[in-house]
Structures are given as C-alpha cells and as structure tokens.
C-alpha cells in the first residue's frame, strides 16, 4: 500500500538535506586541523621551554597536518579549481569563511615555523612564526566546532555549546599523543599533560552535550557513530592514562599511548561526523526536538 506517512514524516524522508561531504575528507579535515592547531601550541611551548625535539616535531606535524587538511578541504570542493573563492569575502556569519581566513593566517605561520625549524634558516623569523602559529593554532582547532554546529544537523547543532570544547580537547589529545609518539620521553612531559588535559575536556564536554540533546543523543550511541565514539573514548582514556602513568618511563608505553590518542581523536571526529549524518537522515531527529520545543513554548506561555 502507498505507505501512510506517520505523524512525523513524509515517507520517512529526511527533513533536512544531509551534508554531501565525504567523511574521509571532512572528518579528516577536522582531525588534521585540530592536530595542527594544538601541535603548534605544543611547539610554541616547547620552543619557549627549550624542548627542541618536541618543538620541531610539533612544527613539522602542524605543517603536515594543516597541509593535509587543506588538501582534504580542497578535494572535497565540488569545484576544486575555485578554492580561491574562499577568500572572495569575509563573512563573520560563515564559520567556513572565518575558518578560511584563520587558515590563511595560520597556514603560512605554521609553514614558516616548520621550514625554519627544518632548515635552520631565518631562526628569528622562525621563532616569531612559531609564536604566531601557537597563538592562532587554537582558533584553528576550535572554529571547526562552530563549523559543524552552525548547521541544521541536529546532532551537531544541539551540541553547539560543547562542540568547540570537544574539538579542542580532541585536538590537544591528538597533538599530545603525537608528541608522545615522536618526541623523546624526556621532552614529552607537556605533551603527556596536554593529552591528559585534552582527554578530560573532551570527555566532559561530549558527555555534557549528549545529556543536553534529548532524543538526538541516540545518534551518538547507535550505529556506526556509536561504535566509533565508543572506540574513541576507550582509546583516548587509555592513551591519556597510559601516557600519564607510564609515558614518562617507557618509550614504548609512550609511543603506544600516543598512537592510541591519535587514533582516539580520529575516531572522535569520524564518530561525530557520522552521528551528524545519522541525525540528518532520520526525520525523527529533526521533528521530535522541534515539536518538544514548540510544546515547551506553548506550555510556557
């Protein structure tokens, strides 16, 4: 029979259009952007506090990650040749426009910092660039939270108060993890602490987000998103604790913990991305919260 639509949907068709973004490109972009931003901060600290290897690891990682993320972004464009149009305008209402300008500022700084670190040329300039990257890096890591939250995708928008925190947490964990993985144990203390800090922030904020979003929280717990996010949590917690407890003693433990953290961050980003897709595809996640909101409004006068 021609299905009789239920109260809440038109033949179960989504109300909103799910993003057409390739998960690999965009979740990858989120991850790499976060990794870059937080790595620059670590690199800056390391530079200041005389941890040359950690600094160099951070700078190179930042450049590689930001390069990768930019590549992913361009690749995802429907018209890659027109990527320069991103700088056609400055739009504070567009997180992607703001992000583009942030990237346009941060990218060259991260590049200069890394280049100087690798070649040893223009050390003074390199230091200035390192500082600049360290100061702009957090913006790179944080704005992506707004990028996702400023959409009609229920799982993202409903988390708009937490998503930037979740993302910087995940970024710190990843960057810390990478530091643990690549820098000598002796220099990696701040990386371990950054990872621990990141893991705590991420866990707390994502928990808060899920509690605040009613039925939509299902999308974080079910399906592919659920699997990814459970893995993310396990990896991140294990990596952070492992790093904190054993990372200072064992290179292997540090490396393993670091890798787990990086992987955890990857899973977080892909998990959140998938939760968003799932919430967009099922009209219930759009309609039910809106209905509840309407009911509250009329109930509350």
């Amino acid at each position: 029979m021609v299905p009789r639509p239920t109260f809440r949907s038109y033949y179960g068709e989504p109300v909103i259009n799910p993003p057409r973004w390739e998960p690999l490109n965009i979740a990858g972009y989120l991850f790499l952007g976060g990794l870059a931003g937080a790595s620059s901060v670590i690199a800056g600290g390391a530079e200041l506090t005389g941890r040359p290897v950690l600094a160099k690891v951070g700078k190179v990682a930042a450049l590689a990650a930001i390069g990768g993320s930019a590549a992913a972004l361009v690749k995802d464009l429907g018209r890659p040749a027109r990527f320069a149009n991103m700088l056609r305008t400055v739009k504070p209402t567009s997180p992607m426009s703001v992000g583009s300008w942030i990237l346009a500022t941060y990218g060259p700084l991260a590049g200069a910092a890394a280049a100087s670190a690798v070649t040893g040329w223009f050390p003074r300039l390199g230091r200035a660039a390192t500082a600049g990257a360290a100061l702009t890096g957090p913006a790179v890591a944080a704005y992506t939270g707004v990028l996702l939250a400023d959409t009609a995708v229920p799982a993202w928008h409903e988390a708009h108060r937490q998503l930037p925190f979740t993302f910087i947490g995940s970024a710190a964990a990843a960057a810390g993890g990478l530091g643990m993985l690549l820098a000598p144990v002796a220099e990696a203390g701040p990386a371990r602490r950054a990872a621990l800090f990141g893991a705590v922030v991420e866990t707390v904020s994502s928990g808060a987000a899920e509690r605040g979003m009613g039925i939509v929280a299902e999308t974080y717990r079910q399906g592919r998103a659920g699997t990814l996010l459970r893995a993310a949590k396990a990896l991140t917690v294990a990596g952070a604790l492992g790093g904190a407890l054993f990372g200072g003693r064992s290179r292997t433990a540090a490396a393993l913990s670091g890798a787990a953290l990086v992987a955890g961050s990857v899973c977080t980003r892909f998990g959140i991305f998938e939760a968003g897709l799932a919430s967009a595809r099922d009209p219930k996640y759009t309609v039910v919260p809106q209905r509840e909101r309407l009911a509250r409004r009329s109930g509350g006068g």
Binding site: G137, P164, A172, P190
Partner: peptide, 22 residues
C-alpha cells in the same frame, strides 16, 4: 554569536591548558 564566544573560550582553554603543561 554564542557559538563564536564558545569557540573563543575553547581556543583560550586550549592555549591555557596546553601552556599549563609546560
């Protein structure tokens, strides 16, 4: 606007949190 404020706060948190580790 709220989201931008949140993001700003988050960025500062990142800066501060990582810096604290040093």
């Amino acid at each position: 606007p709220a989201m931008w404020r949140t993001a700003g706060l988050a960025a500062l948190t990142l800066l501060a949190g990582v810096a604290a580790g040093f």
